[in-house]
């Protein structure tokens, strides 16, 4: 793919939805306390800095090149191998959390193996299609996801308690690091994979796509985190299996106290499917570079 200008918006939305991935299902982490929101904000800004620092390095490493000698070639093959492995680990983690959610909440009476096979088949199929398919799917998926997240946030607003995130005392550096690290390592660091995907598709990583993708994804994910924490408080949210799904389930309508959590299932499906497809796409590209 080399029509860079046409896919700027697609890339931004793909990056945003990749960031959300499986994080939207599990945040806040089990170790979250009253300072978790501050930890998230801190992790977001740190990752913004890290992404822009690493951008030229990643551009250099992952765009196609001619190797000067066999030693250099060996180093790059090792790098591509490690990248493929990290993508596989990230894809597995995302898939496991999604399958866990589906088997416990959506389809408890259906065999988890069947759910897994169907989902993996769809993800593999999507990743083996032309990459424009993933970009186009990301475009409309992110719009729908953002609308759903914003709508649920607004509908839950009247039950929010601001003192659930208010800081009555500044945290110590140890407390802040304890809350920041999980977000940095499990949510924002894997974002580098989507930058590598960009490099594989477009032979360069755009600054605009990186900034906007990370920001949009960060803000949307922040809304889901706030939705849970403002409603339940950090300690109770952290103890739930699927905090955001539980938060949405508290939105009720009608005279029969009907729940609306069904509308949230698309959010998880789209985010996880796209993330896994992108990871498989990266693995494919790395294998091609190793053996090509």
């Amino acid at each position: 793919m080399n029509s860079k200008a046409n896919y700027t918006l697609h890339t931004i939305f793909l990056s945003a939805i990749f960031l959300m991935g499986n994080a939207v299902i599990i945040l806040p982490f089990p170790s979250a306390d009253d300072k978790t929101f501050l930890g998230y904000i801190f992790a977001f800004f740190v990752s913004l800095g890290v992404c822009f620092l690493l951008l030229p390095i990643l551009n250099n490493l992952y765009t196609k090149r001619n190797f000067k000698n066999s030693f250099q070639k060996a180093i790059f093959i090792a790098l591509y191998g490690v990248t493929a492995l990290l993508s596989a680990i990230e894809a597995y983690r995302c898939f496991y959390q999604y399958a866990d959610f589906v088997s416990k909440t959506v389809l408890p009476k259906v065999s988890p193996i069947l759910i897994s096979l169907i989902f993996i088949a769809i993800a593999i199929y999507l990743s083996f299609r032309h990459s424009s398919v993933i970009f186009k799917f990301s475009l409309f998926s992110f719009v729908l996801v953002f609308i759903a997240v914003a709508a649920f946030f607004i509908m839950s607003y009247k039950n929010f308690r601001l003192d659930n995130i208010s800081l009555l005392q500044l945290p110590t550096s140890k407390e802040l690091i304890k809350q920041t690290l999980p977000y940095l390592l499990k949510v924002f660091l894997p974002f580098l994979l989507v930058l590598i995907y960009q490099a594989c598709q477009f032979e360069r990583i755009g600054k605009k796509q990186t900034l906007w993708g990370l920001s949009l994804g960060g803000i949307t994910l922040c809304l889901t985190l706030l939705n849970s924490v403002l409603l339940f408080g950090a300690p109770f949210s952290a103890g739930l299996d699927f905090p955001y799904a539980s938060a949405i389930s508290t939105v009720t309508v009608g005279y029969l106290f009907s729940r609306m959590d069904g509308f949230s299932y698309f959010i998880y499906f789209a985010c996880c499917l796209i993330k896994i497809s992108v990871c498989i796409g990266i693995i494919k590209s790395m294998i091609k570079r190793i053996f090509g």
Partner: peptide, 14 residues
């Protein structure tokens, strides 16, 4: 009152 089930559970953790 903060008497929703989740509010009661959250208060029990304080």
């Amino acid at each position: 009152f903060h008497n929703r089930y989740y509010e009661v559970c959250a208060n029990k953790l304080r």
